[in-house]
Simulated assay, not measured.
Amino acid sequence: MASAVKEISYEDLLALLKQNQNLVLVDVRSKAEVDNGQISGSINIPLDTVESAFKLPPEEFKSKYGKMKPEKDSDDLVFHCQMGRRGATATTKAYQLGYSKARNYAGGYAEWSKKQK
Rank of each mutant, 00 (worst) to 15 (best):
D35Y: 01
N36P: 03
N36Y: 03
N36I: 04
G37M: 06
Q38C: 06
I39Y: 07
S40D: 15
S40Q: 15
G41D: 15
S42T: 05
I43N: 08
I43E: 12
N44D: 09
I45F: 04
I45P: 13
P46C: 05
T49K: 14
T49Y: 13
V50Q: 14
V50E: 11
E51Q: 13
S52E: 14
A53G: 05
K55W: 10
K55C: 11
P58Q: 00
P58C: 00
P58T: 01
E59K: 02
E59V: 01
E60T: 13
K62H: 05
K62A: 10
S63W: 01
K64G: 03
K64C: 04
K67G: 05
K67H: 02
E71Y: 01
D76E: 15
L77T: 06
F79G: 02
H80M: 04
Q82I: 02
Q82A: 13
G84Y: 09
G84A: 08
R85E: 13
R85M: 14
R86K: 12
A88R: 00
A88H: 01
T89L: 09
T89Y: 02
T89F: 02
T89K: 07
A90E: 11
T91Q: 11
K93N: 10
Y95T: 08
Q96L: 11
L97A: 06
G98M: 07
A102F: 04
A102G: 08
R103T: 14
N104F: 02
Y105G: 01
G108V: 00
G108W: 00
S113P: 06
K114V: 00
K114G: 00
K114S: 02
K115Y: 00
K115P: 00
K115S: 02
K115N: 10
Q116I: 08
Q116N: 11
Q116V: 13
Q116W: 02
